[in-house]
Design a protein around this nucleic acid. Structure first.
Lengths: 348, 348
DNA sequence: ATTAGCACTCGATGAATAGGAGTGCTAATA
DNA sequence: TATTAGCACTCCTATTCATCGAGTGCTAAT
């Protein structure tokens, strides 16, 4: 199972070549192109060994070899060299990232666009998950008879709102009073524990309003950590440029998998537990993405991880480039969100 | 240019057949299948005439005929019979439309999904454009040092919010006072005229806060009628099922056109001026959609048109079905939004 | 251990062919 | 005069077959 230096070198050369060309690479190409100073026959022998070890595959007898998922795994773990990010790419990213102060949604969208534009793969991003945030402020704003707007602000500075129904006999003054008491009493409570806390701790003057309070809290929790958060997707059609998807059925399968945003949400939720993750082909849980690779990272404010994002591409992916770009974007995004919240000097 | 009854009948038969089969229809098929009691030779003569008039086209000499865009236009204007909506379809739609009281975004998404699921084409929907709405209420909620949330409620009952920067020396009481004055003074002003009105009419005690007020109003206008509203798209991949798009390049073109949501926004914005519109093939402004047809409708609350939605499909489309479904959805959606706003008795 | 040489495999490419759906035209028919 | 049967013709589609060449595995020589 151990590969000596030469085998590694050959394998790397094959992978590099295949990533560029997308077609099986033969022994001759390797013996020529790189500085190995070995004949094609020797390369062939090595290739046969590499195939036996499971690093290479042959589409058919008289074709060259293509790397297996196992080979890509080895490649990203040990072999590939770091890529750097070019001036042009930075410029391209900056061009997309002209977010306005007040719109997280826009930041999400633009990040996804930048990412897909730079990598030419498909980008996805999950909006901030606020469950781990803490409550900072609740405000009830009367709208009209029987309706109010509830606004919740979290420790990371995000605001969410929802229209709720209120009892007919509840006037503006009482809404204001409830806002004050709730804010006071549940400040710094984790957002996903408010429901519990409220149903335990309602007492005193709030008791007679318990039905209303429970329904309000239920609404808040639903908005804060919705079941179907609005995962942004960008560049799904980029995949159609790659020969892997010149077959319409392959393309259909990929696009279908990706259109049902739930798939992506599941994927990104799982990914949000790790700072960085690379999933190659077969390693994917999702049957329909077994010939894709996925690279994800999490973004955060301060120390709090908020959500994750990443790209999907063919297993034959420019891993090093993608990793560099994603790492850069992760810093960009975290900075941007942090700035938006905390920084008071910079304008827009 | 005038077509007699028989020619019309034959043309209709051809269109109906082509919509089903997607392949050129020959004279024999028409003479057999329908109750014309005419030989294929007669049909052929008529077809030659119809071709001369521009209603039919021939892919090549020895193929059958396919309808031209002009023919489809005639078809939808005069010839097709109304379709009805089946129990199953209603059930399917209902299954998607389980919206929660507080989430317009969700209603949008689900409408799009229902529409694409029922028609098997691509559905799109534009969220409410509130420019024509009138202001009902402005509320500034203090968040923390130097930041506040501005909440705007419109006549149709929609709430929008944004985080804004406020002068350091502005306290909660003043925010409250400004809210009250603004609401009082600009109530019932059209949302897209507020900027103007404010910059003209700031006077008295508000004058010293004019910089702040202008920036606030600017933010409001941006959120109320954003340049890139979040057009929901659903079922783009449905198109890949149709033989029209078995060519990867065609598919790529369609998906690219549709992925840049601006295209769709333009399209829907234009459509929102009409209660109902059908655009066939060549009639499309957009070069990339010249072999698609688009059916749109507007939804509203009471009399105010809020936005529009529709489907995109191949020109060979089940027009009657689509029209029926869209009309049904239009009523559904308008009811749903109206209910969400006005109705107080129904639960969730 | 490496390499030159060679027979072999197998997909890709393209020409040749047959098949068939559909047409337009003509002449016969009601 | 309108309709139709009949027939030659067109042109797409599918299939077959041969050729080509990239690439392999194996063997024997270095």
């Amino acid at each position: 199972m151990e590969l000596d230096a030469r085998k590694l070198g050959i394998l790397k050369a094959i992978i590099d070549e295949y990533i560029l060309s997308a077609s099986p690479v033969g022994s001759r190409a390797i013996s020529k192109h790189n500085g190995f100073n070995l004949s094609s026959a020797t390369i062939r022998n090595e290739m046969a060994d590499l195939e036996e070890f499971g690093y290479l595959e042959q589409p058919h007898t008289s074709a060259g070899r293509i790397p297996s998922d196992k080979a890509y795994r080895l490649y990203v773990n040990q072999m590939m060299q770091k890529a750097s990010i070019s001036k042009d790419e930075v410029k391209l990213i900056r061009a997309h990232m002209t977010a306005k102060l007040d719109e997280v949604e826009t930041v999400m969208k633009q990040t996804a666009q930048a990412l897909s534009a730079v990598t030419h793969y498909t980008a996805m991003i999950m909006p901030p998950m606020l469950s781990a945030n803490r409550l900072r402020h609740i405000q009830l704003v009367p709208l009209r008879e029987g309706r109010a707007l509830v606004v919740v602000v979290t420790s990371a500075g995000f605001a969410r709102d929802a229209v709720i129904r209120v009892p007919e006999d509840m006037d503006a003054a009482e809404l204001e009073r409830i806002s004050r008491i709730m804010t006071e009493r549940f400040r710094d409570c984790r957002m996903d524990h408010i429901g519990e806390r409220v149903s335990q701790e309602i007492s005193g003057e709030l008791y007679e309003r318990r039905v209303f309070l429970n329904s309000m809290v239920e609404t808040i929790e639903r908005k804060i950590a919705p079941e179907n958060p609005n995962v942004q997707l960008s560049g799904a059609t980029n995949m159609l440029h790659y020969p892997e998807y010149s077959d319409v059925n392959k393309a259909k399968m990929f696009l279908t998998a990706v259109e049902g945003r739930n798939t992506l949400y599941e994927l990104l939720k799982r990914a949000s537990k790790l700072e960085f993750s690379i999933t190659i082909g077969d390693e994917n849980e999702n049957e329909m993405l077994k010939d894709c690779s996925i690279v994800t990272a999490t973004y955060q404010i301060g120390d709090e991880p908020l959500g994750s994002f990443g790209i999907i591409g063919p297993t034959r992916m420019h891993y090093n480039k993608v990793i560099t770009v994603i790492d850069y974007m992760r810093r960009c995004l975290s900075e941007m969100l942090t700035e938006e919240i905390d920084d008071d000097s910079a304008d827009r």
